[in-house]
Computed example of a mutant assay.
Amino acid sequence: MSQLTITLDDDLLQAAQDYARRHGQELDKLVAGLLQATVRPLAQPFPQQPAVLTQPLSPRIQRLFGAVQVPADFDYRKALEEAIQERYGI
């Protein structure tokens, strides 16, 4: 694996480090994940376990589990499609 050195404004670096810390990630892995998502061609399938998603969830996100109850036969894709059609008239 190769290394890359980037130059950031001190305030931006501090904000990025704080963001990564709040989300339970290391800054280098966060940046690598963002770059990978940006440069990956849309036709290329996603890896089985993306590095960004293998990090532990933040306590704030963990508290959301079970907060929403949906029927067992709920089809989120259908609900999403209907919401998009309603919003954009597609």
Rank of each mutant, 00 (worst) to 15 (best):
H23T: 04
A51H: 15
Q62H: 05
F74H: 01
Q48L: 12
L57V: 08
R22M: 09
D28S: 15
I6G: 01
Q69W: 03
Q49Y: 13
P47W: 06
R77F: 10
Q49A: 15
V68N: 02
G33P: 05
Q48V: 10
G24Q: 13
L30F: 04
Q55C: 09
L4G: 04
Q69E: 10
R60D: 12
L42V: 14
L12D: 10
R21G: 05
T7Y: 09
I84R: 12
A15C: 04
Y76R: 00
K29G: 08
R60C: 08
P59F: 05
T54H: 14
M1D: 13
L4W: 08
Q17P: 02
G33V: 04
Y88G: 02
A79D: 03
Q36A: 14
D10Y: 09
L13W: 04
Y88W: 13
A32P: 02
D11K: 13
Q17H: 10
S58K: 08
M1Y: 11
R22V: 11
F65S: 06
G89I: 06
L34Q: 06
A15P: 03
Q25M: 14
A51M: 14
T38A: 15
A79N: 02
D10A: 15
G89K: 04
K78D: 05
A83M: 04
L57S: 08
Q44M: 14
D73K: 04
L57R: 09
A51D: 15
P41Y: 04
A83N: 00
Y76S: 00
A72K: 09
I61T: 11
L53K: 12
A67D: 01
S2F: 13
T5H: 11
V31Y: 05
S58D: 12
Q25T: 08
L34F: 11
D10F: 08
D10C: 07
G89H: 07
E82I: 00
P59A: 07
T5R: 11
R21P: 00
L64K: 05
P59S: 06
S58G: 07
A16N: 10
R22H: 10
D18R: 14
E26L: 12
A72E: 13
Q44I: 06
L27N: 02
L4R: 12
Q69S: 07
L4V: 13
Q48A: 15
F74Y: 10
Q25D: 06
R40N: 09
L64S: 06
G89L: 05
R22I: 13
D73C: 00
Q36Y: 14
A43D: 15
D28G: 08
G24V: 04
D28K: 13
P59Y: 04
P50E: 00
Q25W: 03
L27I: 07
E81W: 09
L80T: 03
F65W: 03
A51N: 15
P50D: 06
T7N: 07
Y88L: 11
H23F: 02
L35N: 04
V68K: 06
F74E: 04
A20E: 00
L42C: 12
I61E: 07
A43P: 11
V31F: 03
R21E: 14
A72H: 07
Q3M: 13
Q3G: 13
